[in-house]
Design a protein around this nucleic acid. Structure first.
Length: 259
DNA sequence: TCAGTTGTTTATAT
DNA sequence: AATATAAACAACTG
């Protein structure tokens, strides 16, 4: 699930239940999700510290404390939950931050990404060095600059986290469908007007999705149709087209998005 | 049994 | 050098 709006939802969970709370201990249920840090080190580094206001950058969640920072990435199936200590364990709880009030649980079925630890701000910067500007806070000027001079298909560029951070497969398809731009369009063939439409549409889709904490399945959106195999375009009724683009299942409307 | 899945990295080819 | 593609990672569903 996790794309920018999902991770923004996890940030809110952490902001609501974690900020100001003391970390009593860290229970690593499955060390398979730890990246570059061991269970003992993680626990010792965080014990006694309190969570500060968290940040999100693209699909990364930065769980700051008054000591180190924990970096969470949710891959395709991760999530973050708060619950009381007595709550039943979930099969896919991998790391549990035991607080002085309840627990924050990093849950993930597939373990494609995981949990990192940064002792210093420089270490955080190092881990995010290759990540582009956040899709929700990037300016139109910066957005345009970053698209200019790139080649390849517009969808591949939009989902390239080093160009722009936060857009995944669903969001990219949705934004391009709403902007009436074919995902197969070479990005260097977009003129100023089309780039502006793309930017405005991206912001509109993100702003609609973020409060829901997901990419919402709406009837009037492509998201509401793409899961049914023979679904028509919600806008014009034309049967939707499906094909793989850079290895990802891609859905678009040939009539609304010519190219 | 087989294909597919909302992410990222790596190897290989162009 | 930059892009494109496939595979790998791991777990599960239809």
């Amino acid at each position: 699930m996790p794309e920018l709006p999902d991770v923004e939802g996890f940030r809110r969970v952490l902001a609501e239940h974690g900020v100001g709370r003391r970390i009593e201990r860290v229970r690593v249920v499955d060390p398979g999700v730890l990246r570059g840090v061991g269970a003992g080190t993680l626990d010792r580094a965080l014990r006694g510290h309190r969570f500060d206001e968290p940040e999100r950058h693209g699909k990364w969640l930065l769980a700051h404390t008054d000591g180190p920072t924990v970096l969470l990435h949710f891959g395709m199936t991760g999530s973050l939950h708060w619950c009381g200590t007595e709550a039943a364990p979930h099969r896919h709880d991998r790391v549990i931050f035991v607080l002085d009030r309840g627990e924050l649980r990093y849950r993930d079925m597939r373990k494609l990404q995981g949990v990192r630890l940064a002792h210093e701000p420089d270490e955080v910067a190092g881990l995010l060095a290759k990540v582009g500007p956040d899709a929700l806070s990037v300016t139109r000027r910066d957005f345009t600059e970053r698209l200019r001079g790139r080649r390849g298909r517009v969808k591949s560029v939009l989902t390239d986290q080093s160009v722009l951070a936060g857009l995944g497969n669903l969001l990219a398809d949705e934004i391009l469908w709403q902007a009436r731009i074919s995902p197969w369009t070479p990005v260097d063939r977009l003129d100023d007007a089309r780039r502006r439409v793309l930017f405005d549409t991206m912001r509109r889709v993100l702003r609609a999705a973020v409060p829901t904490g997901r990419v919402p399945p709406r009837r009037s959106w492509l998201t509401g149709a793409r899961d049914s195999p023979d679904a028509p375009c919600p806008r014009c009724g034309t049967p939707l087209s499906r094909r793989r683009l850079s290895g990802r299942g891609t859905v678009w409307c040939q009539r609304c998005q010519p190219g």
